[in-house]
Every structure is written in C-alpha cells, then in structure tokens.
C-alpha cells in the first residue's frame, strides 16, 4: 500500500501551478510593496548611520537653519549626522555621502578637532549653521543636510532591533557606568549599548576608540534592521531627531533601491596622543579634503574587525 500512497501523493503534487507564474506574481507583489517598506527601511537605516531621515514627516521637528538648498533629486547627498548628549554637546560626528545607488560612505570626524577658538563639538549647540560651515571649510565638501539625534536614544534603538552585535578585542570595564564588555562577539542592548557608545575613559586611544565603537555599532545596527522592525524603530527616534528645515526627507529616502551598505573611516588628524592633555586636534584641510574625496568615492575598504 505504501507504494500506492507514494504514487498518489506524487500525482497530487504534480498538479502544482507553474513556478514561473508564481515567480511573476512574487515579483509584482514585491514591487508593489516596495515604496512603503523601502522608505521605512531606508529612512531607518539612515538613522542607523547615526541619525538621519525618518519617514513620518509630521513627526519630524524641523529646526530653522538650513545649510544649503537641496540639490537635484537622485544625485548623491552629503549629510552630516550628529550624535548629541543631553546638553546638546556633540558626542559623535559622522559626515556621510548617500549615493544614488543606496551606498553610504561615512567619515567620522573626531569631536576634538580644533576650529578657530572652538572645538568642533561645541559648534552645534551654538548654531547648527556654524557646524556645517566648519565641516564644509575643513573638508572642502558641501554639506547638503544635517540630522541630529540624542545618543541616549541608541540604547532603546538597540532594544527595538533585538540587540546589536559588536566585537570587542579585549575585555574592558567602564569605571563610570560599571559596564563590563568581555572580549569577543557580543550582543548589546539598552544601557549596555549606551555605555558601549559612551565609554571613552579606560580606552587606550580615548575618543578615537570610541569613534571606532560608534562605527562598529552602526555597522552592526544596519545589519539588524528589517522591514518588520523599521517602523517601530522610526517611531522610536522620530520624536527626538532634528533635521534642517530645507530637507525633504521622504524624497531623500526614495532614492534607495536596495539594501544599504555602509563603509566607515575616521578623518586623519594630528597626533592622537594630545587628545588627553587638553589641546584640540589639528586636521590638515588639504589632507582632509583628499581623505573625504577618497572615502566618498567609495574607495575605502570595509572595516568589520573588532574594536577596543
């Protein structure tokens, strides 16, 4: 009887519809679904790159200072992503080029770079326009838009995506927050994620190591964003993110046609050792211009190694 059962089931299975019909249907439905999913997904990824676009335009708090008029659609856009602490001091500064093809090439700017009499991290609080102008002068590259988000949000963001995986070279303990990070791969969430992003003391290279941590975290976060968590994530950050008034975020998000690939690097500056003795870092404009040009052209190699 078993053979008969086999034959009967095989005959039933043989009745299936042509897989090409299903493929065509899948393709059609995928396309139809694309707009919302992609706008949500991409907008959130952008946010992942340290806080950029959020879909729900009504939820976006626009600030007054727009650095520049928007360029024509579909051209690459240079966005300054600003991570701020609770007092509007800049904790993280990422200058990123969002390509028309959905790629993101990002350069972290160390927050202790000296600009005139100020550190670069004090400029945003004074006037966002001051910061964007300083970055434009330093890198000889136009800042099309900026987006600022409170670093404190990242603990919750990590929670929403179910944790962000990073790799730590050697076990460290943050004496301020008591957070302990064992060596190797680990998944961070909530306060632990926040402590990871904030720790500067106790790291060999201070803020430089922290910048590396930010980059590792963003890369890990980008990998965790899916269509299903994109919307909750967008809701999470939409109340605190600030973008310049001239930025049509929806239009911006529509440029992306697929998964977003992020490449990160850190702007070279004068001897990092001076970071601890109070003097600001010097970034050579000529070198900065070349570095940003090189990185924005997508020539940098991906960094996915472990951080301190």
């Amino acid at each position: 009887m078993n053979d008969l059962i086999r034959q009967a089931i095989a005959a039933e299975a043989e009745e299936r519809v042509d897989s090409r019909t299903v493929l065509a249907e899948l393709h059609k439905r995928k396309k139809r679904r694309k707009p919302l999913g992609l706008i949500v997904g991409v907008a959130t990824l952008t946010a992942a790159a340290a806080a950029a676009a959020v879909i729900i335009p009504t939820a976006i708090k626009k600030t007054d200072a727009a650095p520049a008029a928007p360029p024509p659609p579909a051209s690459p856009q240079n966005v300054l992503l600003i991570g701020i602490d609770d007092n509007n001091n800049t904790d993280a500064l990422v200058f990123a080029r969002f390509g028309g093809d959905g790629s993101v090439n990002a350069v972290s700017l160390p927050r202790d770079i000296q600009i005139g009499n100020d550190r670069i991290n004090a400029l945003f609080r004074e006037d966002p326009k001051k910061l964007t102008t300083a970055v434009e002068r330093l890198t000889a590259t136009k800042v099309d838009h900026y987006a600022a988000i409170k670093m404190a949000e990242f603990g919750r963001i990590a929670e929403v995506v179910g944790g962000v995986e990073v790799c730590v070279v050697a076990a460290t303990k943050d004496l301020e927050t008591e957070a302990f990070f064992p060596s190797g791969r680990q998944t961070l969430t909530g306060d632990q994620a926040l402590a990871f992003l904030r720790q500067r003391k106790g790291l060999e290279m201070g803020d430089f190591d922290r910048v590396k941590r930010h980059q590792a975290f963003l890369t890990g976060l980008a990998a965790k964003i899916t269509k299903s968590n994109a919307l909750p994530l967008a809701r999470e950050i939409s109340t605190t993110i600030k973008v310049d008034a001239g930025w049509d975020v929806l239009e911006f998000a529509q440029r992306f046609q697929g998964p977003v690939k992020i490449l990160t690097a850190t702007l070279p500056v004068s001897d990092p050792a001076v970071v601890t003795n109070g003097a600001g870092l010097v970034a050579d404009p000529e070198q900065a211009k070349q570095f940003v040009e090189y990185q924005f052209a997508g020539k940098a190699r991906p960094q996915d190694g472990c951080v301190r």
Partner: peptide, 14 residues
C-alpha cells in the same frame, strides 16, 4: 509540489 500535495488544491497552494 509539497504545498499542492498537502492542500490538494493547487490554487490554495499557490
């Protein structure tokens, strides 16, 4: 094929 075999209905399976 599998879905058609368990549902006995190719459209439902699709």
């Amino acid at each position: 094929r599998y879905a058609t075999a368990i549902t006995c209905d190719k459209h439902l399976a699709q």
